[in-house]
């Protein structure tokens, strides 16, 4: 069986070897429906995504800004389940979908499903790993063990408030990549990123044995072009979700609009 965590790391390293930062687009699964999500995933692959972050909606997304909160609300109307998500991924893989996918979601739905049960089924389905923003290092031991056993990427997060020695410990426990949160705050597109971000990323990359991806607030190709020099991977979320939200009434053009934007972002990752 393919090693899910390794595939994530390799996809990022390969982009880096081509002289690019890896691009990791985020979409909220089941927004506006799981069928559209599957179409969007194909579009993201075609547009050159190196890894994909697939959000699993939660009723209480306390690390998210309004854009992703609203996406979660729309998605929840479809009563999504982890089983449905896993079945979709399995189906995509059967049809030759190559890009590594990591699921991003708050802990409770995974906890309810059973972490071990989830990991087992994720591996079988061809899902590559998970990012759980409300599971910090101190509480992550059981999950890290399970993820390791099923060769899934357990992507851990570091923030601007994280001191260096703690960041090093988090990075050592992270697999796939280390998710560096660019701002002290919640998700959402921002016009300006912190001035010392480049410096912080330099330090994070020095301390981390796995590639460092940066996310939160990155919304424009210019920002991607700038950060491509300082990060191994770049996550863009709210900006894409906004495009989806703007096209809810014109579904015919939704997928194309997302694809075009991601193509533009990917072009900006050239160093």
């Amino acid at each position: 069986m393919r090693n899910g965590a390794q595939a994530v790391e390799e996809a990022i390293r390969k982009a880096n070897e081509r002289g690019e930062a890896a691009l990791i687009p985020f979409i909220e699964g089941a927004d506006p429906s799981l069928e559209v999500t599957a179409e969007l995933l194909w579009a993201l692959e075609e547009a050159g995504a190196d890894v994909i972050e697939l959000g699993f909606p939660f009723s209480d997304p306390l690390a998210d800004g309004p854009t992703i909160q609203e996406a979660a609300q729309r998605a929840l109307k479809n009563r999504p389940t982890l089983s449905d998500f896993l079945a979709m991924v399995e189906n995509l893989r059967r049809k030759g979908f190559k890009t590594p996918i990591v699921i991003m979601g708050y802990l409770n739905p995974f906890y309810r499903f059973g972490l071990e049960n989830f990991a087992k089924q994720a591996q079988k389905a061809g899902l590559n790993g998970a990012i759980i923003p409300d599971l910090p290092l101190e509480e992550a031991k059981p999950w890290l063990k399970i993820a390791h056993r099923y060769q899934l990427a357990a992507v851990m997060l570091a923030a601007p408030t994280t001191p260096p020695e703690r960041l090093a410990r988090i990075a050592q426990n992270s697999s796939g990549f280390l998710y560096y949160v660019s701002v002290t705050g919640i998700t959402g597109a921002r016009n300006k990123l912190p001035e010392d971000l480049a410096l912080k990323l330099d330090l994070a990359r020095e301390l981390s044995p796995v590639p460092v991806g940066v996310g939160f607030g990155i919304s424009r190709p210019e920002q991607v072009a700038h950060l491509a020099n300082f990060a191994d991977a770049i996550v863009v979320g709210s900006a894409i979700v906004k495009i989806i939200a703007a096209h809810l009434k014109k579904p015919a053009s939704l997928v194309k609009a997302v694809r075009d934007f991601v193509v533009e972002l990917k072009a900006a990752t050239k160093r």
Binding site: D134, L157, T161, T162, T184, G185
Partner: peptide, 9 residues
């Protein structure tokens, strides 16, 4: 303490 890393410190 099941919170985002930003709050841990």
């Amino acid at each position: 303490r099941y919170v985002p890393e930003t709050l841990m410190p």
